[in-house]
């Protein structure tokens, strides 16, 4: 009994000590200056994202988790992340059948059975957190900016709602929040990753198809992913230096 109480006190003291830096960092994160926090060094990270097409089963858990975590409106159709399903007839590869019903929020219906054999796969999409982002370039007031750790973020107190960045993004990842009239997009769950957590979508993905990666951390598994897999980015001709790396990406994906 005595030892149980002692253990509890010890555990509690440890938890208190461990959570204090997190609490300290949290204040800075809320203030929009995570780099000022003692235990999160923006210069020590460079965030990227890895997606394994062959692992994605189109369950839509990531879409739901993202909407819950980041308060993304359910209506109209606005998404920080969504999943597309490609169905390609090998005889007509130039005309893939693509759909993303409600962004894949509710998963996908079965493909109607047919005699024809088709190729099909899912493609999760999100902000590519490009290091030469057209959206950052065009923002007239600098409300959209690159964080020092490689995440494209929006200062919602500064955004004019001119929508130029929405036009400039080649990937369709931005939308106007109908409640605030400013632009919104994937933040790579910045409030989570600066506390040592992964993104909500990665957290819930049942197959590990989505992986947050710190490109500055030599021990991060993303390096093994980039080394061992044939990876591709979306629309490389746009030269945006996207940091969303896809393994198993079909050439038909736009």
């Amino acid at each position: 009994m005595e030892s149980g109480r002692r253990a509890f006190l010890e555990q509690g003291a440890r938890l208190l000590v461990l959570s204090m830096p997190a609490a300290l960092a949290w204040e800075h994160i809320l203030a929009g200056t995570p780099e000022a926090a003692d235990n999160y060094d923006t210069a020590a990270h460079w965030w990227g994202f890895a997606i394994d097409i062959e692992q994605c089963i189109g369950c839509g858990l990531c879409v739901r988790a993202c909407k819950d975590e980041n308060d993304v409106p359910l209506e109209p159709f606005t998404f920080r992340t969504w999943v597309e399903r490609y169905v390609i007839d090998p005889d007509d590869p130039d005309h893939p059948m693509v759909e993303s019903p409600n962004g894949g929020y509710d998963g996908f219906a079965d493909i109607p059975s047919s005699d024809r054999k088709v190729k099909t796969f899912f493609v999760p999409k999100l902000c590519n957190h490009c290091s030469s982002s057209p959206c950052v370039q065009v923002c007239p007031v600098g409300a959209t900016f690159d964080s020092p750790d490689g995440v494209v973020l929006v200062d919602k107190q500064r955004c004019l709602g001119c929508r130029y960045c929405v036009q400039a993004c080649p990937y369709g990842t931005r939308y106007i929040d109908p409640r605030t009239h400013v632009v919104d997009k994937c933040t790579l769950c910045y409030h989570r990753i600066t506390r040592g957590l992964t993104t909500a979508c990665c957290e819930v993905c049942p197959t590990g198809a989505r992986m947050l990666g710190d490109l500055k951390n030599p021990n991060d598994p993303i390096h093994e992913f980039l080394r061992s897999r044939k990876v591709h980015v979306l629309k490389p001709q746009m030269a945006t230096h996207s940091k969303a790396y896809y393994a198993g990406l079909d050439g038909s994906v736009r």
Binding site: Q137, C139, P140, V141, R158, L160, G161, Y164
Partner: peptide, 24 residues
């Protein structure tokens, strides 16, 4: 058209110099 027209004056005060629109 702007979502926040009251902020438009910041284009004069703190323009983002790489933005084509900021020069308007």
């Amino acid at each position: 058209h702007l979502g926040h027209p009251e902020r438009s004056f910041s284009m004069y005060l703190t323009p983002h110099t790489q933005s084509a629109m900021a020069m308007f």
